[in-house]
């Protein structure tokens, strides 16, 4: 009996020590299986060919740097880099500027109204990208869409918004900015609210107008929030896939084909898994560099 209690106590102490490892193990097991293995394998695949149909052995064969050399001579890949770059830069700059403006205005109106409006602007952020894209697709449809019907009623010309190379990318960008605006504005607004009232009072005493107030007080203090918004935005945009695949499929003439979509085509349409992995590795590196640069230039000595 006494021994039993002792044993139980000893077990209790061991368990106390062991418990944290047990608690975190599912994460790290999952991490090993679903991330560490895939990412290492992805890097390996970037240097290999994989024919998934081969039944003898694994169907893998090592080809060295071939894919990476090929990548930088591949006009379609370079084009996808350009497309992704344009989308990322335009959406980040315009989207963030609009979101700051919206947040500032939302902050000024009575709380009740502000809450309703916030909920409204926030809707696209909680709506499936599939749903959003199909709504836009119907509105922009050349032959039976609302926009062209409206233009015609106003005596203007119809236009093939999604089908012509000159406008498809811009239609996509407008949709992206629209769907991300509410989310960004909401985060920025929470940043606005955390700026101490006294700073504004001080600025007023110094005779600052509302524009100077915004420029010299609001904006600098918003920097941590903006950093967050821009960084998460850039990472999302660099890997943009679903809205493009659903809205234009990358066309016309690959004018909207992003890197992630090209990767998907190579892998799942052409079964070029090795080449697609080389693209994936390159894309990952680009994302890391972009985040790093972003912290370097934007981050400064901001405290979190």
């Amino acid at each position: 009996m006494l021994l039993n209690v002792e044993a139980r106590e000893r077990w209790g102490r061991v368990w106390e020590k062991l418990a944290p490892y047990v608690f975190i193990s599912p994460f790290f097991l999952g991490f090993a299986a679903f991330q560490l293995f895939p990412i290492s394998f992805s890097v390996y695949l970037g240097f290999a060919e994989w024919n998934p149909y081969v039944r003898q052995g694994t169907g893998l064969s090592f080809v060295g740097l071939q894919h990476f050399v090929q990548l930088f001579a591949d006009a379609r890949f370079l084009n996808s880099l350009k497309v992704t770059g344009i989308i990322t830069v335009v959406c980040t700059l315009v989207g963030t500027a609009l979101a700051v403006g919206l947040a500032v205005l939302l902050d000024k109106v009575p709380e009740k109204l502000s809450m309703i409006l916030r909920a409204l602007f926030f809707m696209p952020s909680v709506t499936s990208v599939v749903v959003i894209t199909y709504i836009w697709k119907q509105i922009l449809s050349e032959k039976y869409g609302y926009l062209n019907a409206l233009l015609e009623n106003l005596g203007l010309e119809r236009h093939n918004w999604l089908g012509s190379p000159s406008t498809a990318l811009w239609a996509l960008i407008v949709m992206l900015i629209w769907s991300g605006l509410g989310w960004d504005a909401l985060i920025i607004m929470s940043g606005l609210r955390s700026i101490p009232e006294e700073l504004y009072d001080a600025a007023k005493i110094d005779g600052a107008g509302s524009w100077e107030e915004f420029w010299y007080v609001t904006l600098p203090l918003l920097r941590p929030v903006l950093l967050f918004v821009v960084t998460t935005g850039i990472i999302y945009l660099l890997g943009l896939f679903a809205p493009v695949q659903l809205l234009t499929g990358g066309g016309p003439l690959h004018r909207t084909e992003t890197v992630a979509l090209y990767l998907y085509h190579q892998a799942f349409d052409y079964q070029e898994f090795g080449y697609a992995s080389a693209i994936a590795v390159t894309l990952t590196l680009i994302m890391f560099v972009a985040s790093f640069l972003n912290y370097r230039f934007f981050g400064g000595e901001v405290e979190y």
Partner: peptide, 30 residues
């Protein structure tokens, strides 16, 4: 407080940065 806590915590934080595309194809294989 346990041995390796800091390191494990940082490993975890880094996984937040990995884009889904980096693992998509091997995950499909897996």
């Amino acid at each position: 407080n346990f041995f390796g806590k800091q390191v494990l915590f940082w490993i975890m934080m880094i996984t937040m940065m990995l884009p889904v595309y980096a693992t998509l194809i091997p995950s499909f294989y897996l």
